[in-house]
């Protein structure tokens, strides 16, 4: 095995998950209590609503070394605060466009709707996303790493 491959194998992506308190966080909990397997790369930050996620949070997380970011909230229409996730959708999809425009692959930033009863879906979303980020390698641009 070459040295390069070794380094690549050792590298584990850092993934930040902003999960809404009412749906996705409970969904993650359900995945845990149901003993579903998903990669341990995700570090979860609980927010009260996906609408709380300020675009600055995403950019700051990327700057501080996140390789991928997942924002997850209630399905449209199911928001605990009635409309928070609609606001999140507006803000964050626009941020995805802007990241692409800056030349930062917006696939590193994913959104999903996971309800409290969708433990299975949560595990799937995290697994696919982690694999995708592993494929993409470390995020260097917004970290300012050459």
């Amino acid at each position: 095995m070459t040295q390069e491959n070794e380094a690549k194998d050792e590298w584990e992506p850092k993934i930040i998950g902003f999960l809404c308190n009412w749906c996705s966080y409970t969904g993650a909990d359900l995945a845990g209590t149901s003993r579903l397997q998903y990669p341990p790369n995700i570090r979860i930050i609980k927010v009260m609503c996906s609408g709380r996620v300020n675009p600055q949070f995403i950019l700051k997380a990327f700057q501080e070394g996140a390789d991928g970011i997942l924002v997850s909230g209630c399905h449209p229409g199911d928001c605990h605060y009635i409309e928070g996730n609609y606001h999140a959708r507006r803000k964050l999809t626009l941020l995805m466009d802007l990241l692409d425009y800056m030349g930062v692959d917006s696939k590193r930033f994913q959104m999903s709707w996971v309800s409290a009863s969708e433990g299975q879906k949560f595990a799937e979303v995290v697994t696919t996303f982690t694999n995708q980020i592993k494929e993409m390698g470390p995020q260097t641009k917004l970290r300012g790493v050459k």
């Binding site: 449209p76 409309e83 609609y86 606001h87 959708r89 507006r90 803000k91 999809t93 995805m96 917006s106 994913q110 959104m111 999903s112 709707w113 979303v125």
Partner: peptide, 16 residues
């Protein structure tokens, strides 16, 4: 203002 409101039909195909 744009971020002060929303539309039920806002596009969001990127969201899984």
């Amino acid at each position: 203002p744009m971020f002060g409101t929303y539309d039920l039909d806002d596009p969001g195909e990127e969201i899984k």
